[in-house]
Amino acid sequence: MTTTERQQIVNEFGTEFGKGPKDSGCTAVQVALLTARINGLKGHFESHKHDYHSNRGLLKMIGQRKSLLKYLQNNNEEKYKNLINKLGLRK
């Protein structure tokens, strides 16, 4: 993920869910960044099926995102629902 893509995600989700366009510590922004990194690894795993070390890192990122989403669901359910709809996480 490039720096401009990261800044774009922070601006988009920081203004909608956080305190402003530079609020990179907001839970929603962290979830969006993790989702972008997780989705970015799809192509890597298509060509490198036996990369088990990267797979472990992927599973750690998924666990981190899961815990952040659980925190958001417990504290602000409206933001949680809006975020998962915007990211398309649940079906």
Rank of each mutant, 00 (worst) to 15 (best):
M1I: 05
T2N: 14
T2M: 01
T3A: 10
T3M: 09
T3G: 04
T4G: 00
E5N: 07
R6T: 11
R6N: 04
Q8S: 13
Q8M: 05
I9Y: 04
V10R: 02
V10N: 06
E12M: 04
E12R: 10
F13G: 08
F13T: 05
F13I: 01
G14R: 02
T15V: 11
T15K: 09
T15R: 09
E16Y: 03
E16A: 14
F17P: 00
G18I: 03
G18V: 02
K19W: 03
P21T: 03
P21G: 06
P21A: 13
K22N: 15
K22T: 14
K22G: 07
D23E: 07
D23V: 02
S24A: 15
G25L: 05
G25N: 15
G25T: 08
C26A: 13
T27V: 14
T27G: 01
T27K: 12
A28W: 02
A28F: 04
A28T: 04
V29T: 10
V29D: 10
V31F: 07
A32K: 11
A32S: 12
A32R: 09
L33W: 06
L34I: 12
L34K: 15
L34E: 07
T35W: 08
A36T: 06
A36P: 01
A36Q: 13
I38W: 09
I38E: 12
I38N: 06
I38L: 11
G40V: 03
G40L: 06
G40Y: 05
L41G: 05
K42Q: 15
G43H: 04
G43M: 07
G43Q: 10
E46V: 03
E46K: 11
E46W: 02
S47D: 13
H48Q: 10
H48K: 13
K49M: 08
D51M: 09
H53V: 10
H53T: 11
S54H: 12
S54W: 07
S54A: 12
S54N: 15
N55D: 08
N55Q: 13
R56M: 11
G57H: 10
G57V: 07
G57P: 00
G57C: 06
L58F: 11
L59A: 08
L59T: 04
L59Q: 13
K60T: 11
K60Q: 15
K60D: 15
M61R: 11
I62N: 03
I62S: 04
I62M: 14
I62L: 14
G63I: 00
G63P: 00
G63H: 07
G63M: 09
Q64M: 11
Q64C: 05
R65M: 14
K66Q: 13
S67P: 00
S67C: 03
S67V: 12
S67A: 14
L68N: 02
L68F: 05
L69Y: 03
L69W: 04
K70R: 13
K70M: 03
Y71R: 14
Y71D: 14
Y71Q: 14
L72V: 01
L72Q: 05
L72R: 03
Q73M: 08
Q73N: 06
N74D: 15
N74F: 01
N75Y: 06
N75I: 04
N75Q: 12
N76P: 00
E78R: 01
E78C: 00
K79S: 14
K79E: 15
K79M: 07
K79H: 12
Y80E: 10
K81D: 13
K81I: 06
K81Y: 01
N82I: 01
I84C: 07
N85K: 15
K86E: 14
L87G: 09
L87D: 13
L87K: 10
R90G: 04
